[in-house]
Amino acid sequence: MALIETSTVGHVGYITLNRPQALNALNEEMDQLLGAAWDKFETESGIWVIVLRANGERAFCAGGDMHAPPTGSSGLSFGGGITGIGGRLRPISKPVICATYGHVLGLGFEIAMCADIIVAATTSRFALPEARAGIIDHCGVVHRAVRQLPHHVAMAMILAGEPLDAAQATHYGLVNEVVAPDCLEHATTRWADKLLACSPLAARAAKEAAIAGLEGSLTEALSGTYPGIRRYAETRDRTEAIDAWSGRRKPHWAGT
């Protein structure tokens, strides 16, 4: 049984956590396989959108496996490199959708927050159990929590292990949509279709600029220059955008 499954449908690459008997908790093998999956879809030009999901009924991901936790031995940070915890960060330039349900804990919560779009089943329960369990190490998850949630909400999660249900997560802007569990796949596909309607190269350029701009003040972000946007100006998609606008038709993106 593959602990991390990958598949493609058109321009969408799917990465599936597949260790439901352990609540999809990440061990060293899963972490390395997840890193390979991110690398696979990041480098395939035909993949425009990446979806992270999980198998099982109880948990999207219960965090790191306490019996055999990821070690970062590959040199990448945990979560296959996307979290920045414990090693080298692997930036993902393409839009990432995360579909959650059940327990979304610790490292699992961190991975979900690395996505650009989060679609949550009503059963989703987001929590940081580190303080309550008395176990904390790199604690990268707290830095994303205080940036993506209101300060006091994040601190209640960090200091008291206070969970957020799906409705609360939506209220605080953590997730984009909450749906019934049996609608999660459909809703995720709908979000993927929204992203596929956009120029994949324009979306990647915009994501690069948005994330890079967060590293400084608003004034610095506004006055900065971004390589992705400069590169986009010379692409077929940019030409197609102008032609489609002039012809009053829908654009046909090439992604090149």
Rank of each mutant, 00 (worst) to 15 (best):
L196H: 05
G140S: 01
V179N: 02
M155A: 14
T189Q: 05
H151S: 14
R190E: 15
C198G: 11
E215M: 10
I158P: 10
L195F: 04
M155V: 12
D182P: 04
T189D: 07
C198T: 11
E208Q: 15
H138I: 11
S217N: 12
I211E: 11
H186C: 01
V141W: 02
H151N: 14
N176W: 01
P163R: 02
C139W: 05
P181K: 00
V141P: 07
A209E: 01
S217M: 13
E215P: 05
L164Y: 03
D193W: 02
H143R: 11
G173A: 00
A202S: 10
M155G: 12
L214W: 09
M155S: 13
G173F: 00
E162P: 13
A212M: 14
E177W: 00
P200C: 09
T188C: 09
L174Y: 01
R144K: 15
A166H: 01
A166F: 02
V175K: 00
C183L: 06
A145F: 02
T170S: 14
A192F: 03
C198A: 15
A156Y: 10
V153W: 05
M155L: 14
A160I: 10
P181R: 02
I158W: 05
A202L: 09
E185V: 12
G161C: 13
V141H: 07
V179I: 04
A156F: 11
T189C: 07
A212W: 12
L159D: 15
L164S: 08
A203K: 11
A206R: 06
R204P: 03
C183Y: 00
A210L: 11
A180Y: 10
K207F: 01
L149S: 13
D182T: 07
C139I: 10
H186Q: 03
G216H: 12
V153R: 00
C198Q: 14
C139L: 10
A167L: 10
L184C: 10
D182H: 06
H143W: 04
